[in-house]
Design a binder for these strands. Structure first.
Lengths: 228, 228
DNA sequence: TGAATAGTGTCTGTAAGACAATATTCC
DNA sequence: GGAATATTGTCTTACAGACACTATTCA
């Protein structure tokens, strides 16, 4: 007779978040100093236990952890992957449901949380657990999805100009993009609306039109979580 | 003082598998009659608890569950997503790490397991838990990935002809494909090798060249799990 | 007016699809 | 030879990138 699951040791169940943002013309990941063992005092991804008494699901747990630990409510949050095994956490066989968040740089500044440390993703990160693998997986996912989606807009803030947005796409792709092709694609996707009379003027040159994401694309976060 | 995690009720942690295959010119999902409560006797996706004492990770747990319950060792297995929440399982707050498997029809026949029931994915499935959502998510993922990958080959068996493979791609895409374009793309991807002197002759017409996946593409399963 | 960047029009090469011709088998 | 399907060649059309021109601001 096989033992019931209640007899077996159950895995530890946590969530971790790869919070990505753009600063200093580069893609950065947010880390926090760990306040508890293991690896107390080391910089690591924000994470925590699922609270069965208050979380609606892993997505809600990730949102709560981000909000409580950084003061940021990310405009985009999506499940990335689940990491598991007996050795990834010294506490034992563990499961971490990892989400990645996209946040405009301005939101990080507004939160004004000194404990949040931004590290460039392109250099070695020296993070505990398998957090470095999580970051690399998230960046890869973001780069893949950026090729054919509006995701990078969530790194760009409430309003932005097309040259600014193109720069973000270029950062993610790692290569310069053709201006005409870029604008053609953005137009086809029909995801932006110009802000009447809104212009960004930053120097002795023609000012650029300001845009924002259309409402339908801003709502995507919720739709994704409801199963589509 | 916050309670330690050992004081909190921990979620139930399971794996489920969406096993997809092609039969009768349609995409099918494998189900089994449940042998335990809850929903005992109902058709549902194969699943089970993680065994912390023997599983290397969730991928290993999924592979073990599939092997033990169906006798099939799928040539392709990939993590899909993790489903979680307090209501998806009547036993309480639960986490299910879901993988999807691609299996050629012949492998199902070889396993000769009468308890495996194949249901067409295009019709309502009437599965317990959130299994129907899992199936829909898996099919969507497969369709997306098929557009630019060799995934559908894992539904096609050890050897196959180009017309056979094209039919599988068409099933997944839901539309007829241009023959010339299809062959151009396959050639570019450089993933197939012709079998010397191997031809499929099925009627009064020119026989078709047999192909198989190149070794590099067959290994992809393992690479994926090692972090790339 | 000149410098600098924003935004648009046009040309050209590449790649995808349509069409059609050829190849090979069994009857 | 005729039917049926496999495979390949060629033409046409659509799209992506290169290039260049116009627009608008400030100094």
């Amino acid at each position: 007779m096989k033992p019931d699951h209640t007899d077996l040791p159950q895995p530890i169940c946590t969530v971790d978040i790869v919070l990505l943002t753009v600063r200093d013309d580069g893609l950065m990941v947010a880390t926090l100093k760990r306040e508890h063992a293991p690896y107390i005092g080391r910089s690591a991804l924000p994470g925590g236990y699922i609270h069965a008494d208050e979380d609606a699901n892993a997505f809600g747990a990730a949102m709560r952890v981000i909000r409580d630990k950084t003061g940021i409510v990310p405009p985009y949050l999506e499940q990335l992957s689940t990491f598991s095994g007996p050795t990834r956490d010294p506490r034992g066989w563990s499961v971490s449901i990892v989400h990645y968040a996209l946040v405009p740089g301005e939101l990080i500044a507004q939160a004004n949380n000194a404990s949040v440390q931004l590290l460039p993703v392109d250099r070695p990160l020296a993070l505990p657990f398998d957090h470095e693998l999580m970051v690399r997986t998230a960046v890869e996912r973001l780069r893949n999805k950026s090729q054919y989606s509006s995701l990078p807009c969530f790194l760009a803030g409430e309003t932005f100009t097309l040259p600014q947005l193109q720069r973000i796409y270029e950062l993610l792709m790692g290569e310069p993009l053709n201006k005409v092709s870029f604008r053609r694609k953005i137009t086809e996707m029909d995801m932006l609306e110009p802000i009447e009379g809104g212009f960004e003027t930053a120097g002795a040159h023609r000012p650029a039109q300001l845009y924002r994401l259309k409402a339908a694309f801003r709502q995507r976060l919720m739709l994704l979580e409801r199963g589509l």
